[in-house]
Amino acid sequence: MAVQWKRRLARSKAGYLFLLPWLVGFFGLTLGPALASLYLSFTRFDLFRAPKWVGAANYVRIATDDPNFMASMRVTFLYVACSIPLKLAVALALAMVLNRGIRGLPIYRALFYLPSLLGASVAVAILWRQLFAGDGLVNALLANFGIQGPSWISNPHYALWTLVLLSIWQFGSPMVIFLAGLRQIPADLYEAANLDGASRPRRFFSITLPLLTPVIFFNFIVQMIDAFQSFTPAFIVSRGTGGPVNSTLFYALYIYQEAFSHFQMGYAAALAWILLLLIAAFTAFSFLSSRFWVYYDA
């Protein structure tokens, strides 16, 4: 027993050596502030005066007496549930198309990536207003079909959907990751399948999709963590208001408002830790499920 442990620890040495930079960063830069925010979540902290311990009061208020918490949860869940599947589907589809050996594809790859490069640039806010305001381009197009559209971006029923569209429009990152994943699928597998006379859909479902699952899984997790914390689209497009009528009040935007506009950092920290637990639960569930559908080292 002791010998076995000794051997395992000896083997561990190399692992921890490689892990060293990360461990230094974790203990030196990440852990302290994270614990500090956990502590702050049990205090009333207005940024300037010393934090005052209030026990679980912040959490109680979140659970029982905060309509904005519920509103922002609703918005965030809708956003996560709609934007991720659509964005990943679009990214995968285009990655498949762009992975062919056709001339000129690098150009398209770059072009399709362009919207993502815009990131959170302020120009996005103006562009989106040009497209989705009452007198915007989208409604001008709809008018050709005799449809009079609403002002999508400033209507509480539709404003969130313009942000979902924005997220899908910027599908470049998952697309590139899918492309890199597709590149790692051995070509000889396809050749073998070709020799067997497998049809295109069959090749997709029995080779591409299974071998791509680690990448799909990665994209899913990362996009989910990202979408739950989505901040900049709403911050830019609604200029930080989360309006109209809180219809784009993303959870992270609400945290930001509480922390920096309303000087309720303790409360904001409590909100943040609830979000962390939520994301962690979803991630853990995804990892558990991954045993059944993700294939490593096929």
Partner: peptide
């Protein structure tokens, strides 16, 4: 987990 904590609340510490 370090990816999951919104950075606005760790900013000040």
């Amino acid at each position: 987990v370090t990816m999951m904590l919104p950075y606005h609340v760790t900013l000040i510490p």
